[in-house]
Design a protein around this nucleic acid. Structure first.
Lengths: 206, 206, 206, 206
DNA sequence: TATGAATGAGACTTCATTCAT
DNA sequence: TATGAATGAAGTCTCATTCAT
């Protein structure tokens, strides 16, 4: 977590800061998911974190900072989960397929967090928003790179300039599982969803 | 707009209610787009609407009602625009293609509204949310019906049970133009975006 | 009802005024009993009276006027009921006994109104309050006069100067049935209550 | 004051809560007496208490809570004053006589508070009202117990089952001094009032 | 460092009263 | 006379942030 640049703290010990901020993010994310960012009061956050108001404000300086912490936290979670799943040697096509499956599965696991992330980012200030967008972009680039590898290995037929779009498509189709659950999950399981979507994505690029 | 069931009013004249509520929605949507729902005060809305606080509250009973009005307004706009574009005789495949183009163009025109719609719906109460979800579903069903017509005319190869998923995909890919503008529109114009996405969707179903 | 002096009206026809004001008082008293004067809105009163806001304000000029109308209405009711019960020839002691019984019975019948009367009078302006106090005094004087008649007929042993106090005692003991119902009526019926209290009053003055 | 169960506070220090609530009650009671509960604004209360709006609301959560605080305060005052007056050894009849005198004197001292108490209790919610009624009942029981003691000592001739009623009579006759001052105190001093009323009460039970 | 009481501007909402029709 | 939409001041309550201890 490189949020030192964006959030000021009265505390000197950077290890402590990291530890406490992680703690705050963990406790806050649950509250935000349950009640939404605006409906959650700083008092509630302090209580849930087992800290006093003063102590809390020693590690952040604005309520918005907590939202940033939370968004960052969610993105890190996804990022780490996804990256740590990339093991073993395989051909690039299988790699892509597995990455999609993994990403969609992660989204399913933390769908509430995903909703939170995409609905509340707008409440962040410009800089923080940029930071979060960047994290989102990094994730996209992971897929883009796999696609480029596929192109190099000629396992798909796609122009290099279109990889960005396809990568975004993959991500959005994944997030759709969280956003449109109310409509989709009535008819279809995650397993089938992944199969169908993967199939269609592949048809589009092969 | 049949929001009489969900929003109470102190005014008796239903025509007047409709007129004023439309006016309020029109003025509020701009404020919400600019500052967000929570950051916009009722006083600002009253002022922008050229009404007194009291008059405003004669037509609604909660600030949340205004959000509902706005969400409803946006959906109606999209719905009407889309439906009014369906003219002329054409084969179902062309029909689908045109519908996609039309929908994506509408999204481009009112992208700010789209963002608002999908980020603030969560602030509505359960009933209002259901209502809005339903409007979203209606839109999806339009695409689903076109797809089913294509299947009947055998212009695409898709199983009937997969039409829902593809319809959602079409919608999400369209909304993506609003949500991921910051990443996509740097490299690509709306025209190209529509072409590429249509191509990929069609590859997936033919 | 001589409230013309205290409440202004835009209407000329005095018969109409009387009729409508009676109507308003009748409808309002129920609302006031149920919700209290302050919690009842003029809108509710207008609706319950089947009048428009404007029409209502043609017959009164302040919300307080309605409260006055109501208080007056209650007092009149008690007064008329009590006075109309005074029939037949009897000795003064029996007269007193009957009057007490009658008064207490009236209080039992309209106990909610009694509570209203004594709790909301304070919200009236000085003049209106005086008027209501006067009506209360008139009622007291009825008892005082009976007591004086008893003294003249030597059926009780009481000094003339103490009649006022005893008259007040009689009234307060009656009102107590309304005010302390929550404590008293658990153990005792109205019939017994009247018996016991009458007995004690008589012991005090004979 | 054990009002912790009925009024929530954001403050942790219970001693502080008690102190401040006492302070708030003291300042509010004057305002309520002067202007009435409904006519007094929370802002005025805060100002009179020398607290900020926020601070005030840290110790209560509703304006109604302040009314409860005040009613409780008044009752406690009466209760404590009365109880602390019970000293010395005397026969039960004298005891009763002194208690009446003391109670009536207290009422005279705080007649404005008494009026407030009985006119505004209705604005409390059910639970709070019950609590206040209970305090009133406790007071009544004090007199009831004295009466029972008299019965045991055979200094009065009263059936045990009638003690409740007489106790209520004593209290109501006392409160009458506050409620009907406008009519009574013109002719009679507190001293005389106590004498006459005591005399009549005693005649009724001996 | 930590605590939590205090601040105070400002949010939403109500409602007695008026007045154009 | 009657209607009911409009006014706008004022009410209660919240809550991010600070600061004395």
């Amino acid at each position: 977590m490189e949020n030192f640049l964006l959030i000021k703290s009265k505390i000197k010990d950077k290890t402590l800061i990291n530890k406490k901020r992680g703690h705050i993010a963990n406790k806050s994310v649950e509250l935000f998911v349950k009640k939404g960012y605006h409906q959650t009061t700083v008092r509630e956050i302090a209580k849930a974190s087992g800290m006093s108001m003063g102590a809390l404000y020693d590690y952040i300086s604005t309520k918005e900072d907590i939202l940033f912490l939370v968004c960052d936290h969610i993105h890190s979670t996804v990022n780490n989960k996804l990256k740590s799943s990339f093991t073993g040697e395989k051909n690039s096509l299988q790699y892509l397929k597995d990455a999609i499956k993994e990403y969609y599965t992660i989204i399913d696991e933390i769908q509430d967090y995903m909703l939170l992330l995409y609905q509340e980012t707008k409440s962040l200030n410009k800089n923080a928003r940029k930071y979060i967008f960047n994290a989102e972009l990094e994730l996209t680039i992971i897929f883009e790179n796999i696609l480029k590898q596929c192109i190099r290995e000629k396992t798909i037929s796609l122009k290099n300039k279109d990889t960005t779009l396809v990568a975004h498509n993959i991500m959005v189709t994944g997030q759709m599982w969280a956003f449109r659950r109310w409509a989709i999950s009535r008819d279809i399981s995650l397993k089938i969803y992944i199969e169908r979507q993967t199939e269609m994505i592949f048809k589009g690029i092969i």
